[in-house]
């Protein structure tokens, strides 16, 4: 059976606020999935619920068809939104300690800790305190803590936040590598361009419930049709302004980005453009993930 996390009907209130509202989604092993949503959408609450860190009003979470228990959760890796390490504990000891809490032997935990520190360029810092590291390096240690027990599922809350491009590349590389080795990866981020490059699929939530999910390709090509059209001699795309069911989203250097209503045929637009002048460019355009996100959450 393929490892699969199934989230069904999660509901949680904080006072009068409905933080999770019948939220359901799936996460399959070997996939990197972006978990997106505006601030306060319920992403962190969902991740905490997966690790049993808060009580729910309703809903179920299963792994391979079985209810999650503490032993299963110890085979997952978790990186919380607010980074959590002992500031004055030695880095090597800290990783060993966390590895042992994930059922590793002391020897295995030390070996893996050293390996991951070498991978992240921190091998010589094993006997330093966490508080002596920069923010980016603390984040690398935090990721090492989530990885050293070779988890079956990785849940990372904003792992790219506050990192420089080099740090983002390192973490992206590791996440893809883990997915190729059969690990399921779910991570939240507001850096949608990075998510688009990194993820095969996304889950977008808002106000605690699912608004859309699917592969990045499907989401980019689904929904309203988009065209990029350039007509020579008409830099402001005036030819398109009177077309019924066509909205100009952007005009740059004579290149018009058009959004077509569902009942509008692109042939109609092409004919209108040809009648206005010589058509230098006419192409359908994929939606960027940021556009998918905005349309889904507004």
């Amino acid at each position: 059976m393929t490892n699969e996390l199934v989230v069904r009907g999660l509901t949680r209130h904080f006072g009068t606020l409905k933080a999770l509202d019948d939220l359901s989604f799936d996460l399959r092993a070997g996939h990197v999935v972006g978990f997106l949503g505006p601030n306060g959408a319920g992403k962190t609450t969902t991740m905490r619920a997966i690790f049993g860190l808060l009580d729910l009003d309703g809903g179920t979470i299963t792994w391979n068809g079985r209810a999650l228990d503490a032993a299963q959760r110890r085979r997952f890796g978790y990186m919380p939104e607010e980074r959590g390490l002992y500031p004055s504990m030695l880095i090597g000891d800290q990783l060993e300690y966390l590895g042992r809490l994930h059922d590793m032997s002391g020897h295995d935990a030390r070996t893996e800790a050293q390996r991951w520190l070498e991978r992240f360029g921190l091998a010589d810092r094993a006997n330093h305190k966490v508080e002596s590291l920069s923010h980016g390096n603390q984040q690398r240690v935090q990721l090492a803590a989530a990885l050293l027990h070779d988890p079956e599922l990785l849940i990372l809350d904003e792992p790219l936040a506050g990192l420089d491009p080099s740090g983002i590349d390192t973490i992206s590389e590791v996440l893809v590598e883990r997915a190729r080795r059969g690990c399921g990866v779910l991570f939240s981020s507001h850096q949608l361009d990075q998510v688009e490059n990194l993820c095969e699929s996304v889950v977008i939530i808002d106000h605690g419930h699912l608004v859309t999910s699917g592969t990045v390709d499907d989401l980019a090509t689904s929904g309203t049709q988009r065209l990029v059209v350039r007509v020579e001699g008409d830099r402001d795309a005036n030819w398109a302004r009177e077309l019924r069911g066509v909205t100009i989203s952007e005009v740059t250097g004579g290149e018009a980005r058009l959004v077509l209503d569902d009942d509008v045929d692109s042939d109609v637009v092409l004919r209108a453009a040809m009648s206005a002048g010589r058509v230098a460019e006419f192409a359908t355009r994929r939606r960027r993930l940021s556009e998918v996100f905005r349309e889904a959450t507004t």
Binding site: G52, R83, G84
Partner: peptide
């Protein structure tokens, strides 16, 4: 208090009760 303020508590409680 330090485990709570450093937020390491969330990592710990993800593995034990």
């Amino acid at each position: 208090m330090e485990e709570k303020s450093s937020r390491v508590i969330e990592v710990l409680l993800a593995t034990l009760r």
